[in-house]
Each structure stands twice: as C-alpha cells, then as structure tokens.
C-alpha cells in the first residue's frame, strides 16, 4: 500500500451462508484510495458493489459474513477492532449515504434529532453546540433557512433536499471516507448533477475520500478519479477513470461503455450485452462473464487472476482488449 492512502482493501471476501448454499457476494476484492480521491464502484445490481460498501462499514447482516481479506483504514486493520471500536469509527471517520433518503431518514424523528444524535454518539458536546454544528452542516450542503428546517420531519423535504440532509449528516463529524451507495439514483437528473458536483467540491475541500457506488457508468464518468468495475462479486477492471473509459481492457467494461446511450448515434439501436447476469449461488470456477463474452474460449473455464497492467490499473481477463480505444 502506498504511504498516503486513506483506505486499502486487499482480497476482501464476503460470503452469504444461505440455506440454498454459499453466495460469494464479494470475492477477492482489492483497491486503495488516497485522501480526497473519488472512486466510482460500478456494477449491475447483484454484482456485490453494495455488499462491498457494507463490508467496509462492518454492517453485513447475517447470514452474510466477511470471511477473508484485509481492510486498512488510516493504517488500522479494521478486522482487528472490537465491535465498539467499529461503532466509533462509523458515522465519524467513515460515513455513509444510502440510496433512498425517504427510507433512510427515520420518518418519526425530527431532522434535528437525527443530526444531533450523530454528533453526540461520537463526542461529548453540549446539545446547543451539536445543534450549531448541525445548522452549519445544513448550510454547507446548500439548504436554505437551515435553522428553521432543523425542526422539520423528513417527509417535509423534497427528494433532493432530503439527500442533501443525508450528505450533511455524513459531513457532520468530518469523516476521512464517505461511502455513498447509489445516492442519486432516486433523484431527478438535474438534481443528480448538482449533487454530484457539490459532493466532489466538498470532498476535495476537506480531503475526504469518497466511494461512489452506482450502476450508472455515466454518473461516475464526470465525478470520479478512479473506477472499479464489478461483476459477479469480483472487480474485473480498475484504473484511472479516463484510462478505463477510453481504453477498456475487459470485454464487460467495453460492453458497458458501448451500451451507454450517449455513445450511440441517433437512430442506431443501443448495444446490449447478450445474456443475463449469472446467479451468484453455486457460481463455479472460471470467469463469470464467459457465457456472455464474445472472446471467451476454453481457457476461460479457469478463473482469470487479477493482472496488474500498470500502476493502479488491473484487469481480470485472459483475452483483454489491449490498447484498443473503446
């Protein structure tokens, strides 16, 4: 790991032990993140991107369990920490923003309660002080009349404003890392763009690293420094955002980029990756993408190793598109 990194994940594995069998939701995932850096974690639903986020937070529910790998956060091994230490970490050093703010904010508690408790859970402060900081956080994310809005309930905000409240809550304790799980998916496109822009500015200003989990490659394109593409529990390709988007190595990444509407001409049919996402249950050896891959052959029956192409750029494929622009 590089000396200045905020977070370094090595060989993370999170499995779900269901009655029907073991689901390897996260299977050997590695990446690292420097302070102030924004990483996009891209994948279809069920690819394991959200479980990766929850594994970092230490919030994987039974029957799921982190079964392997190492997570170093600010140089500390999270696996070695007690539950209480993990709790202290959550919401202060490592904050989270979830998809639907209407579902994540408690409907029967005032915004004030939900903000103040986040501060008081981590530091002993007078209530008035915590309240003041809450108002400041709301102002930072551009909520007008912050002091009045503090006594409102979640349903009294619009969708975009609610998500701003969640971002404000994430920023309350000046975290080193924010994990945002599809935070703009439920919002209108215009508001989505605003929030993306503001988040980027906020993180750059405070040196906070950001993991932005999304299924939408185009969201990440304008936001992230780095990108990880996940497929069936594995990171199939990772690297700088421009490099990955301009010269994708993995056939899956290539398929994703080709299927973006902005990539196709008017009147031309959108590209589709053939086939369906495989079930993670009882997924055997070999490349999980091979059934849908135009380049697959007999060698793909073995699992491709994570190959380092250049500094910070990896790919899991026996037949990558070397050097070809997308």
């Amino acid at each position: 790991m590089s000396a200045g990194s905020n977070l370094s994940v090595e060989g993370l594995r999170t499995h779900f032990f269901t009655k029907a069998g073991v689901v390897k939701a996260v299977d050997d995932v590695s990446f690292s993140l420097a302070p102030g850096e924004v990483m996009g974690l891209v994948g279809e639903s069920g690819s394991g991107k959200s479980v990766t986020g929850f594994s970092l937070l230490g919030l994987v529910d039974a029957p799921g369990k982190v079964v392997g790998g190492r997570i170093l956060f600010k140089g500390q091994d999270l696996a070695a920490m007690s539950d209480e230490q993990r709790r202290r970490m959550r919401g202060s050093r490592m904050a989270a923003i979830f998809q639907d703010p209407l579902m994540t904010l408690n409907p029967v508690l005032r915004i004030e309660t939900q903000m103040v408790e986040t501060i008081l859970a981590h530091q002993a402060l007078p209530r008035a002080e915590a309240r003041k900081r809450s108002i400041a956080a709301l102002e930072r994310v551009g909520i007008p009349a912050a002091e009045e809005r503090l006594s409102a309930y979640p349903h009294q905000f619009s969708g975009g404003m609610r998500q701003r409240v969640c971002i404000a809550i994430a920023l309350l304790n000046d975290p080193d890392l924010i994990i945002a799980d599809e935070p703009t998916t439920a919002l209108d496109v215009t508001i989505q763009a605003q929030i993306l822009h503001e988040m980027r500015a906020l993180c750059a200003g405070s040196g906070t690293s950001l993991i932005w989990i999304t299924h939408d490659l185009s969201v990440v394109a304008g936001l992230a420094d780095k990108i990880c593409v996940m497929y069936a529990g594995r990171i199939v390709e990772r690297g700088d955002v421009d490099e990955v988007l301009d010269r994708p190595l993995h056939p899956y990444t290539r398929g994703l980029i080709a299927s973006l509407p902005s990539r196709s001409e008017r009147g031309q049919a959108l590209y589709q990756i053939p086939g369906m996402t495989p079930s993670l249950l009882g997924l055997g050896e070999g490349c999980a993408f091979r059934d849908r891959c135009p380049r697959a052959d007999a060698s793909c029956l073995d699992s491709p190793p994570e190959r380092v192409v250049s500094e910070g750029r990896t790919c899991r494929c026996f037949h990558p598109h070397e050097g070809e622009p997308s």
Partner: peptide, 9 residues
C-alpha cells in the same frame, strides 16, 4: 441500518 451506519449505540 442507517442509524447503525451513523455509529449510534
């Protein structure tokens, strides 16, 4: 889940 992510006791 969010309350847990906020680090509440």
């Amino acid at each position: 889940k969010y309350a847990k992510a906020k680090g509440l006791r």
